[in-house]
Nucleic acid binder design. Structure first.
Lengths: 201, 201, 201, 201
DNA sequence: TATGAATGAGCATTCATTCAT
DNA sequence: AATGAATGAATGCTCATTCAT
């Protein structure tokens, strides 16, 4: 069902259910996120979720799309606004961590889905591709720095893995230690990867 | 039951079951790792696992301990053998990635457990502490570099998160792309974090 | 609600819903004939069906009545128009199979209902009585042949069961094999039961 | 799992579950035959059925196989023992109806499955092919009569449909009227189809 | 020690029905 | 008269765990 053909009330329900799914995912983890629990959180019956989304898979997809949209809207403009690749990398790291600060629960929900969603037979889950896309996008940013002569020579894929790895490690820390100093980490990551990528004198 | 009081045959059974659990975890993923599947792999009955380990949780714990021991045995001596902190950091990264190469299945099994094992109420899973320990250990290495004046000033915790994040990202890449060039990545990570930590001229 | 008190528009809605129910039953089978599917076919909401018919059972009843009326209107005059019981039997078989040819979907819908509609406690379904009526009606035709001395002696009920059984087997064949030669079968059935019932020399 | 590799106790459980499934099918009809009901009948837990059969479909298959074996064992030797096709046809009808008398519940269960088991999208169910096989087998018997010159000329497929239709109508009658005179019906069907198939003088 | 049959709670999903709008 | 969102019971299935043999 295309979004345009949905009624206002339907759209509201969908939004409510997605929000509750995010809440439950972030609070209780993927394994404990059952239809019944989401329904209870939304104070509705389980059938409503199937009614609006068709099934758990489609609800999951909707949550992923929702968070991806949230992240893209926040980050992409900030990165593209930078005049140099180095500034772009700084904006990339900063906007990623800002997103974690401002949309902590949606992010945790997304992480739960990406890491815990089981694939067909032990292979990568259906959303593991998201990470691949993230790596590739980051490589483009690094390529920019190479072409502009701002960065030293390095394998872009390896560097992209390192940077994304460092960023992706943050939600886990955040989960374990809610009083985490995100500002400090942001500054340090920016410094670290600025140094690591710039031309060495 | 303390290890000393176990008979030889019992110890052998435990080892066999742990090995099969690792095999299944690495091949089929956490979600598809059922007691029945492990039992089938070991060509025994499901009851045997409960009999020897008490339950799935304790088997999981045994697997984690086994792999942790494997990793520690491989890595710690190599790191401690280095004369400088910078060489220690290089050895840390190299030995971590060597471990992934040489003990791929145990590592994948460990990753499956750490990322997929559900926490009781959405909080950190029971093995998230492992990561905390890993971070703290790495911080000690970085402290060494600070005290020895080899490293520039940085927040050790943030740097540790970045380095471990980069390393922890590798198994995921390995899972998605088995033909991954681990040697190249190793060299690049060593270079990147050597540059990122050394005193800047 | 008695038919007389229904408005014209109400009657039209009922007819539309019955037609759509027949369509869905014939195309998708009893098990896949849900209220939602009928509503979708009719391009209305599910509530309308409940509104007009009260529930699924009553809709089913209405479908049965509709098809029964269709069949009766086609067959009864043709049978009664025959001068002899033998001709009547021929007309009976021919008109039955003609009905299958000309009103295939309504017939299939009826068959779906009669065979698949669950009885309350394993006993005969609520429409099994229809078959009983059909048998009894056919017995009257055979009685006519007996009284007129046209037919040999046989148990009318047994013969009626045989004839109806042969006829009722046709929809199943039709469903499995749409290219079925209905004309050939009609001729053969007429011949078979003409021989089987006539006085033997 | 091949039958040989099953333990005695497993075989007994399987037999018990199949028997209970037949009981429930015959008593309550396909629609009311749920795993829970079968389990309750067998005074076991629902999981046991899944444990021994894998799922409802495989249990159904096992029931069909069981009844088919029962029927084949009873009927085939009797038919093949006849010296002429006419005697074979008599034996066919008699053994079919004898089977209904002696194994009423298994037969009713089979009928429930064949008629009610839903196909993928309204098409014929997975066991509708059974009927096709029955028709084809019967055609072979009629062919024998043709080749031997015992029978008059007729389309074997049409006659087979008529005979099987008459036979298949019996369970329904039996269901509606348990006091049904099966002996009378057997004699009448034999007479009817003997007359209908023999060379006409 | 080891077996494997049995349990029972938990899961997603379907669907006829109801009812405020 | 019609809508369509919501309900809630029922179903088949999975799986860690238990226990008599």
């Amino acid at each position: 069902m295309p979004p345009e053909s949905r009624t206002f009330i339907e759209e509201a329900r969908r939004a409510q259910i997605i929000e509750c799914a995010i809440e439950v995912l972030a609070e209780h983890g993927y394994a404990h996120t059952t239809m019944a629990r989401i329904a209870k959180q939304a104070k509705i019956s389980t059938g409503v979720i199937s009614y609006h989304f068709g099934g758990k898979d489609q609800l999951t997809q909707a949550v992923v799309a929702e968070v991806a949209k949230l992240a893209t809207d926040l980050m992409v403009p900030r990165i593209l606004a930078q005049p140099t690749a180095a500034e772009g990398l700084r904006a990339y790291i900063e906007s990623n961590l800002d997103f974690m600060r401002e949309h902590r629960k949606p992010l945790l929900a997304l992480v739960e889905i990406i890491t815990h969603m089981p694939g067909e037979a032990g292979g990568p889950g259906p959303y593991a591709g998201q990470e691949e896309v993230a790596i590739t996008d980051l490589e483009k940013l690094l390529d920019w720095g190479h072409k502009a002569g701002e960065f030293r020579e390095f394998d872009t894929r390896s560097m992209a893995i390192a940077i994304r790895g460092a960023i992706d490690a943050v939600p886990g820390r955040l989960l374990n230690n809610p009083d985490f100093d995100l500002d400090l980490l942001t500054r340090e990551l920016v410094t670290t990867f600025t140094i690591a990528t710039r031309r060495q004198s």
